[in-house]
Nucleic acid binder design. Sequence first.
DNA 1: CCCTCTGTTGGATT
DNA 2: CAATCCAACAGAGG
Length: 272
Amino acid sequence: MPELPEVEITRRSLVRWMEGRRVDRVEVPDPAAIRSTRSTLPSDAHPDGVAAVRARVEGGRLVEARRHGKRLGLRFDAGDLLVHLGMTGRFTRGPADRFVRVCLHLDDGSAVRFVDSRRFGCLVPTDDLDADLAEGLGPDVLLAPPDARGLGERLRGRRSVKAALMDQAVVAGLGNIHAVEALWRARLHPDLPCDRLGPADLVALAGAIALQVRWAVDLEDGEEVAYVTEGAPNPFTVYGRAGGPCPRCGALVERTTGSGRATYACRGCQRA
DNA sequence: CCCTCTGTTGGATT
DNA sequence: CAATCCAACAGAGG
């Protein structure tokens, strides 16, 4: 599920759900969800992961939940956890299902579960949360949205502007969907090379990124992590709308594939 | 029932 | 650099 907005909603939800509560017990139906590094692979399970998580979490309270890009940092009384949601990871208070990987039982009888059908997500016990949270990441696009000048310094070379925006070392938080949407807002085609971006493009792009991310966070705020909610209409402007009309110029939205990822854009109004 | 394709993540390899 | 494959699955479609 996650790009930055979903991780941010997850963060807020966890704080609300766990505020003032003590974690009585941690249950780990899938020990491979606990990793010693941020790996997407269940085969990189932390050898003593379950014990490491219990030592940090059981009997204590959530002190703080922070986020950098798509990473989440949970600070408990006795230690910290770094969380990555992968593609399908989420925290929920809903009923258990067969995809529950970790379950936190709270002292009021409720439970907060990490659920992840595809198993790319992980919890990482850490002794240096600050470093692990930020390592290798560019500025967070919500907390420290880059301005035109900052983007100009970071979007370099001949690589496509979309590839650069999705590179978490360039800016942290944008994934496929929101990169596509922000580029549409900025009227820039995803394939446009960074070195052909002019000053006006950078101004447009900086504004578009900030708007896109704030729009997405607001869209999902108050809910329990809903992404492209099942059955709900597609909330995006061009993402997932191949063959439909561009709402700005009426040309047909095109779908292309670059490095295995679907890209949507309008040739009519996004400068290539 | 089976097969193929797609996918919101990241990393390794070519 | 970029393109490709891969991880581990679900779900949709044929």
